[in-house]
Amino acid sequence: MPPVSEAALRAAVMRLDPASGVEFDREFHAAWEQALQQDSTVPMHTFLRRWAVFVSLHRFPGRSARVRELERLVGAASSLEEARAAANEVGRLLAAAESEIAGR
């Protein structure tokens, strides 16, 4: 897991999913503007945390594929129970990603 910094996360995102690099840059600039307007570091911390979770989830191909499959299952679920089961597993993967980031 790379350090939770703009440069390290940008490099990781570009390596893991270059198409997401555009979104990373757009969100970075929006967070920067918001931080300046609010005179607060909270928007930048939120931005960094969001992308650290993305990197944590997608840095292992199997986990990345599972996240994408679960997202598809939630969208295609034919019952509330199916959607909840897939969403619960997404929640567990997100919790594991948060733990990984916190343990750095």
Rank of each mutant, 00 (worst) to 15 (best):
R63H: 06
E81L: 09
V42T: 15
E27A: 12
V42M: 13
G21K: 00
R15Q: 13
M44G: 08
A77H: 02
P61S: 07
V22A: 14
A8S: 14
R10V: 06
T41V: 15
L80M: 13
L16G: 06
A87Q: 15
G21P: 03
V55I: 09
G62L: 09
F54A: 03
R68M: 11
R72S: 07
A12N: 03
F54E: 01
W32I: 07
E89P: 06
H58Q: 04
D25T: 12
F47T: 05
A19D: 11
S78L: 07
V22S: 09
V53D: 02
T41R: 12
L36H: 13
A7C: 08
P43L: 10
S40D: 12
A87Y: 02
R10A: 11
R50A: 14
E33S: 14
F60Y: 05
A83K: 04
A65F: 01
V67M: 10
S20H: 02
R15F: 03
L80P: 08
L36V: 14
A12V: 05
Q38K: 14
A11Y: 01
R72I: 04
T41W: 02
A11M: 07
S20V: 02
A85H: 11
G62P: 06
A65C: 07
L48Y: 00
R72W: 00
H45E: 15
R26P: 07
E33N: 13
A87T: 13
G21Q: 01
E81N: 09
S79F: 08
L16F: 01
S20N: 06
L16I: 08
A85G: 12
A77D: 03
R68K: 14
V42I: 14
A83D: 08
P61C: 04
R50V: 10
T46V: 15
R68C: 10
Q38T: 10
A31Y: 00
F54V: 03
V53G: 04
A12E: 02
P61Q: 04
L36N: 15
R84W: 08
L73R: 11
E33G: 12
A77T: 04
H45A: 14
A52E: 00
R66Y: 02
L48K: 01
E33P: 06
A85V: 13
R15I: 06
A12L: 03
F60N: 14
S40T: 09
A35H: 05
A76Y: 04
G75P: 07
L70T: 00
H29A: 13
R84M: 12
A83Y: 01
A30R: 09
A8V: 08
W51S: 08
L73V: 06
H58R: 03
F28A: 13
V67D: 03
E82Y: 04
R68F: 03
L57T: 04
A11R: 05
G75A: 12
P61I: 03
F60Q: 14
R50C: 09
Q37S: 15
P61G: 05
S40K: 07
S78N: 10
L36D: 12
A77R: 01
D39C: 11
R63K: 13
V55Y: 00
H58W: 01
V53L: 05
